[in-house]
């Protein structure tokens, strides 16, 4: 953890300093450090995902929802990472576009769950 914190702060300071000399390299340093920290975070997340997949065995009926949950986590992480990078570069328009696309793709993924929920409710109400 110490290594990750040190890299984050170091890259931020280096980017801030090099912005005064040559502004475009600051973004490259942020991108490189972000990619590395993201990779480290994902390797840490790997254990959680495999545990979730193990849990999936118990809920045989709702196994597919776990897969959907993991996919949504991935989409959120990716959209957040790239949107913040765009914001760093000053392109707020692109950032909002990326976020909007992330939200819409999550909504599309959740549609089947919504319909099955309504079917269950309908079944309970003696539809």
């Amino acid at each position: 953890m110490i290594k990750i914190a040190a890299i984050g702060v170091g890259a931020a300071l280096l980017a801030a300093w090099i912005k005064t000399i040559k502004s475009e390299y600051a973004l490259w340093i942020t991108l490189a450090a972000g990619a590395f920290l993201g990779l480290a975070a994902i390797l840490k997340l790997d254990a959680i995902v495999s545990e979730l997949k193990f849990l999936q065995g118990y809920f045989s009926a709702y196994g597919s929802y776990f897969k959907l949950l993991i996919k949504i986590i991935g989409i959120t992480y990716l959209a957040e990472f790239s949107a913040d990078l765009c914001k760093d570069a000053g392109a707020n328009t692109l950032a909002s576009q990326v976020e909007m696309f992330g939200k819409l793709s999550i909504l599309v993924l959740c549609m089947p769950i919504m319909s099955s929920l309504l079917e269950t409710v309908d079944y309970f109400l003696g539809g």
């Binding site: 991108l31 490189a32 990619a35 590395f36 993201g38 990779l39 994902i42 390797l43 997340l45 790997d46 995902v49 897969k67 993991i70 996919k71 986590i73 991935g74 989409i75 992480y77 990716l78």
Partner: peptide, 14 residues
Amino acid sequence: YVLELFETMQSLFD
């Protein structure tokens, strides 16, 4: 590095 990050993401979250 960025390519490796996105590929790991794709394989992990399928």
